[in-house]
Design a protein around this nucleic acid. Structure first.
Lengths: 340, 340
DNA sequence: ATACCACATGGTATCGTTACCATACAGGAA
DNA sequence: TTCCTGTATGGTAACGATACCATGTGGTAT
């Protein structure tokens, strides 16, 4: 495989001159430029980024560590990240932890070894280990989607508490009193925030005693399982609030299995919308997060830090969620509302 | 950021000795080993893979270039690749081309610059450009999912022709005569093979004159659009065969919009199953490809080449598809059949 | 004439690691 | 004793690129 030395020799110049032409920085005469470019062409020269990065101490690579790439919400986040990074000339490496902190730490080490310029992290659980490792090595890190406690890092997330509050409130105003929350795991901020919003709306309406929260995982299997438990509760809930899209799908499957009608017998609403390419017909009332924008904003913030356009204090960007009313919630009280 | 020199100095040994301990190859006394490992710990040393790869000429990294990461079929392929690669100690970089040959070529160049050890490619269209580039640089490449003409490369794919033939034949035996194929684009081998299988089954039953093939894209939007056109055809088809999962979803949406009942008024079958986490209830009769296994087998084959366990002649692995009968096809002739 | 700047090119060292070769000692085989 | 082999360690160069500094031209302002 030819090196820049080979190119330089063939063009009759010094390697450093060839480098200048290839990277288009510094001066080069028309004549030299052409000779170098022809040599590149003829030899099929492909620059070696390993060597380049070793010397320049920049890889122009970011990493996105997330918990579940098969979830369309995160796929969309990833697209936002990829687009923003690519616009700024960065490559992105994707890593999937399956909500497992060991995997998270393993990937983080790998990425530090690869000397990525910066890291975007959707933390599994607390994320402490990973965050500490990155900060210790001086690698900038932006957390996406979830809050982390007492860590000096930038965060881009959605207002889970506000979104859950707003949708629960609408359900209550529409006449539902016994609403069960099928939640993600304790210790994950999005799950806790959604529970908090849900509870706030209940409390505000004086319905605390009807609070019914199940903790599980952000998966379809867990959604089905929590649904079974919820429907065994006495008195049974009139509405189910699934804390993410996979839980909602699991609930939907279980409900259909039991021949219960939505929304006549039971209302079902959820967090996170599903892309039109995947859903046969839009039916679920949901709190939709701006997934693409979250990815984009996070990547931009990270790049701003890397390129010195942003320094000092950590920022926290909290984007509003949007409520999309469809059939699964039954007729809904249509008062205008916005999440703060 | 500390280097191996720092570690060596602190442990009182030569850098090369530290290297041997860290990589666990070559000899090292218990005493030295402990001193080095303690120094690593104390300094928070993280090896620099850029330097390592530059010197050793191996990155232990593979790349997977595919056409649509948002498609669960490819997500599953990617998981198979990731798992097999990870077992063998390789990292995978994922790239998404959106069926665009320019993107494909752009990513390929990037990956060559990063000196990945090998490439797994789902070619957009012909894939000629990308395949040529990789071969010219001597980087091993395995093609997944699609045939490529006249290229000396390994291929792992599914028997699209056989799968389409088998399902079409079942539809015919169940009494459907006018079956329309909603296909992907011309020039993509999977689309062409599925059309071939479909036509073979029609021909075998003497139904050539009812052949009705629409060419579009492997997307939901295109599926909806082709459905509209198909239903306007006179006489209208009795069954639709969607050539992939997204086309099937688009068809389903359009059909529901038109208040046509499945399977009473119209049967609908497709290629590629959807994972249970994404589908509210399994309803579509499909030809399912072994996506995970395809990814796994392809990655293993590539790694076998890289590590010299496989050489010479190119291999082509063709995995069988599986037919899964559900409601959308109506009552089906249940004769036992296997695709070759 | 002098000073200065834009343009154009090159030399040398260096990024952090490992390949390759060399050295040295202990202990068993011949 | 000599020779060899396994164990243990180190020196030097090289992977391929660029940072940094140096040098030399020609033109223009003073």
């Amino acid at each position: 495989m030819p090196t820049i030395q080979d190119v330089a020799r063939r063009a009759g110049v010094a390697p450093i001159t060839a480098s200048r032409v290839i990277n288009n920085n510094g001066y080069a005469s028309q004549d030299v430029r052409q000779r170098v470019l022809r040599a590149v062409e003829e030899l099929g020269y492909v620059p070696n980024t390993l060597a380049r990065s070793l010397r320049s101490r920049r890889t122009n690579t970011l990493a996105l560590i997330l918990t579940d790439i098969t979830n369309p919400f995160f796929t969309t986040v990833a697209r936002g990240v990829e687009d923003a990074a690519s616009d700024a000339g960065y490559t992105v490496i994707f890593c999937n932890t399956d909500e497992n902190e060991d995997e998270e730490q393993k990937y983080l080490n790998l990425l530090l070894q690869k000397r990525v310029d910066g890291i975007l992290l959707v933390p599994a659980r607390s994320g402490h280990g990973a965050i500490q490792s990155a900060l210790a090595q001086g690698v900038p890190l932006v957390v996406i989607d979830r809050r982390v406690a007492n860590e000096p890092v930038d965060v881009v997330r959605c207002d889970s508490e506000g979104g859950a509050y707003a949708l629960t409130r609408r359900l209550i105003r529409s006449g539902y009193q016994r609403i069960a929350l099928l939640n993600g795991p304790k210790g994950v901020s999005t799950a806790e925030d959604r529970a908090a919003g849900y509870l706030r709306a209940l409390a505000e309406a004086g319905l605390q005693e009807h609070a019914l929260v199940f903790y599980g995982h952000f998966t379809q299997a867990s959604g089905a399982e929590m649904t079974t438990r919820a429907l065994l509760h006495q008195p049974p809930p009139q509405a189910l609030f699934a804390a993410n899209n996979f839980i909602a799908i699991g609930a939907l499957q279980k409900i259909r299995e039991l021949d219960v009608r939505i929304p006549e017998d039971l209302a079902l609403v959820g967090f996170d919308d599903l892309p039109p390419a995947l859903v046969t017909f839009p039916f679920l009332t949901v709190v939709a997060q701006p997934a693409y924008e979250m990815g984009q904003r996070a990547a931009r913030m990270l790049i701003d830090r890397l390129e010195g356009r942003l320094s000092g204090e950590c920022r926290e960007i909290i984007l509003p969620a949007e409520i999309i009313i469809r059939q699964s919630s039954g007729p809904i009280h249509l008062e205008e509302e916005t999440t703060p």
